[in-house]
Simulated assay, not measured.
Amino acid sequence: MNKLNLSYKAQRRLIIILFSSLPVGLLLLFSYVPLIKMLQYSFTDWNGISPEKTYEGMKNYLKVFTTPEYFSVFKVSLYYFFATFIQLGVALYFATLLTFKVRLANLWKGILFFPYLLNGVAIGFIFLYFYKGGGTLDTVLTFLGLEDQIHLWLGDRSINNISMAFTSIWRYMGFNFIIFLGAIQSISPEIYEAAEIDGANRWQQFRYIILPSIKQIVFLNIILGVSGSLSVFDIPYIMTGGSNGTKTFVIQTVDTAFKYHKLGLASAMAVILLIIVLVVTGIQRFLTRERESA
Results as ranks from 00 to 15, higher is better:
residue 91 A to K: 02
residue 92 L to W: 04
residue 94 F to A: 10
residue 96 T to R: 11
residue 96 T to I: 14
residue 101 K to G: 07
residue 105 A to M: 11
residue 106 N to K: 15
residue 108 W to E: 08
residue 112 L to Q: 06
residue 115 P to Q: 10
residue 117 L to N: 08
residue 118 L to Q: 03
residue 119 N to V: 02
residue 121 V to W: 00
residue 122 A to N: 05
residue 123 I to L: 00
residue 125 F to Y: 15
residue 128 L to Q: 14
residue 130 F to P: 03
residue 130 F to D: 01
residue 130 F to W: 07
residue 132 K to H: 13
residue 133 G to N: 15
residue 133 G to M: 14
residue 134 G to P: 06
residue 137 L to E: 05
residue 144 L to K: 10
residue 144 L to A: 13
residue 146 L to S: 11
residue 148 D to C: 01
residue 148 D to R: 14
residue 149 Q to D: 10
residue 150 I to F: 06
residue 154 L to A: 02
residue 155 G to R: 06
residue 157 R to V: 12
residue 157 R to D: 08
residue 157 R to M: 10
residue 159 I to C: 07
residue 159 I to T: 10
residue 160 N to L: 10
residue 160 N to F: 06
residue 160 N to D: 04
residue 163 S to K: 08
residue 165 A to C: 04
residue 166 F to L: 11
residue 168 S to T: 08
residue 170 W to S: 04
residue 171 R to S: 02
residue 171 R to N: 03
residue 174 G to Y: 02
residue 175 F to Q: 05
residue 175 F to H: 06
residue 177 F to A: 01
residue 177 F to C: 00
residue 178 I to H: 01
residue 179 I to P: 00
residue 179 I to S: 03
residue 180 F to Q: 05
residue 181 L to W: 05
residue 182 G to V: 04
residue 183 A to Q: 07
residue 183 A to D: 04
residue 184 I to T: 04
residue 185 Q to P: 01
residue 185 Q to N: 11
residue 188 S to V: 03
residue 189 P to Q: 03
residue 190 E to N: 10
residue 191 I to G: 05
residue 191 I to F: 11
residue 192 Y to S: 05
residue 192 Y to Q: 04
residue 193 E to P: 01
